[in-house]
Design a protein around this nucleic acid. Structure first.
Length: 270
DNA sequence: AAAACTACCTGAGTGC
DNA sequence: TGCACTCAGGTAGTTT
């Protein structure tokens, strides 16, 4: 589910409710996420949430001398609820705070994770090999161009690879390629510098506008208070098979690339 | 090193 | 109703 804008929306939403708050009690109702929930998360009881940031689609919350590392997988969400609110199905982790509210992790498919790492989080194996943040300045067309030399992989896979750049999932990859007029099947090694400049700009633009609208809700993404995001209404190409392209009116095509749906306009995207 | 493939899991929707 | 099947926002780990 969540790509970068949805994770950013979640982070901004929970931040004012957790920073400086003391953690009173942790409960893990189902530890079987992608990896077992760290036993160490119990050790944060009595401490305060100090700082929260995002790296790619990972949410990192500093507590004591360690960091909570949370990923929402395909179907995860984090919400702020009253401590005494009844648990719903798939509410797996609950962190009660001295405010009377809880930070609650919900994830039907359990592809996400809740881990606790002592020491410098930048050395964590899940973060070590990640590419740059797409909204940072260092991420630009020139960067994509040089990184793509010799890469015989379709451009869509290339930009969805977290080692290339983080945070670009299936929806925003399709959208950015549409705005750039690039066929998703084109090999990364065969795209010009000029087109990469355009692509990098469009990746930034698409992610930024989605963040401004609270992210994209296809079925189950909700923010910290359980509301959906509204970027779905702005999607140009994703999920619109057989509908008319907004630029040229031709029917939108859906193909499968590495097991995932790709939507594109065969006339606008070459 | 890079590309292709596997695996993890539930729920919604479709067709018979 | 029920069963079988497909598809869904992600990505580490394994194999080729």
């Amino acid at each position: 589910m969540p790509e970068l804008p949805e994770v950013e929306t979640t982070l901004r939403g929970i931040k004012p409710h957790i920073i400086g708050r003391k953690i009173s009690e942790i409960s893990v109702r189902n530890k079987n996420l992608r990896w077992p929930v760290s036993k160490r998360v119990y050790s944060i009881a009595g401490s305060k949430f100090n700082h929260i940031k995002r790296r790619g689609k990972y949410i990192l919350i500093d507590v004591n001398d360690g960091t909570l590392l949370i990923h929402l997988g395909m179907s995860g969400s984090l919400r702020i609820v009253e401590c005494d609110q009844e648990f719903r199905k798939h509410d797996h982790v609950d962190i009660k705070m001295d405010s009377g509210k809880s930070l609650r992790y919900h994830d039907p498919r359990r592809f996400g994770c809740v881990l606790f790492h002592l020491g410098n989080i930048n050395n964590h194996k899940l973060l070590k090999h990640l590419g740059p943040e797409p909204l940072d300045e260092e991420f630009c067309g020139e960067f994509l161009y040089s990184k793509s030399r010799g890469r015989n992989v379709p451009i869509k896979q290339f930009i969805m690879n977290a080692q290339t750049v983080v945070g670009v999932g299936n929806i925003y990859a399709c959208e950015a390629l549409f705005f750039s007029g690039i066929n998703p099947k084109r090999l990364a090694s065969k795209i010009s510098r000029e087109r990469y400049n355009k692509l990098a700009e469009n990746i930034k633009m698409v992610l930024q506008s989605s963040i401004e609208m609270g992210g994209t809700t296809l079925r189950d993404f909700v923010n910290e208070v359980g509301e959906p995001g509204y970027f779905k209404q702005s999607l140009m190409i994703y999920g619109r098979e057989d509908e008319q392209c907004n630029k040229c009116s031709k029917a939108i095509t859906r193909i499968i690339q590495t097991g995932r749906s790709t939507f594109y306009c065969s006339s606008c995207q070459r």
